[in-house]
Amino acid sequence: MMSVFSDPRHLQIAVLGSLLCFLIVQNDFAPDLEVVALLIGTSLLTQYVCMKYVGMPVIDLRSGFITSLSLCLLFKAASLWIYPLAAIAAISSKFFIRYENKHLFNPANFAIVAGLIVFPDLVWVSPGQWGSDVWLGFALAGAAAVVLASARRGDISLFFLVFWAALIFGRALWLGDPLSIPLHQFQSGALLIFAFFMISDPKTTPDSRVGRMIFALMTAILAFTLSFGFQVREALFYALFAICVLTPFLDRIFKGPVYKWRLT
């Protein structure tokens, strides 16, 4: 067991992979197998080609695999040909959109936002496709994965969820709504994938704890505003996309250790 999970990414793959398998078996709007194959295949291939291109000494496809699983769970397109484009955009963004040795965007989030902007009539995200029973299991597994995977950097998931909860529960209190409403809003599978597998990306978040806290707070506030003020359904993804641009500034202000994946 320990050796399998010695690299935290293995646990991430296990969690996302199980969720995907579960959805494929149980959900009417799960991705078709050809979509899964296209996303995973193209992601791994792009990862391989990009690693060769930039001359990495060791070819490691694991993070590309994680990205493709996130895309399988969230990214929807009306035409099949968009999926490989999304995978290429996601993975290559890691290699080519960089600032000071870090990539700027979480790759899956980048592909979702790029898809929504470039093909507004062909791409969408279905955030409501998870039952609440799945949610709890996924919440626990996701939390475990994020704690093990990004070590102390996993705090950003927690920061974000706390800020997000504060905002939606605060809104409910202000409106006089019963707590069942924010609780229901919180029970979203898309929110968990976002919190545990996107915003937590150790390569795109600030190096210091204070930086990460500010990052999470800004993302939550922006997403909340877009969602409730402007009725943007994909608010979380746009918010993360926008706030990621600020990471270099946050790193300059608040210094912290640079993240490296532990080697297996």
């Binding site: 009417d28 709007f29 009306a78 009539d121 279905s126 955030p127 409501g128 496709q129 998870w130 039952g131 229901h184 809003q185 979203s188 359904r233």
Partner: peptide
């Protein structure tokens, strides 16, 4: 005009 309508805060089942 575009396509299927779905709720974003509830699950859709066929």
């Amino acid at each position: 005009k575009n396509g299927r309508v779905e709720p974003v805060n509830y699950r859709t089942v066929k």
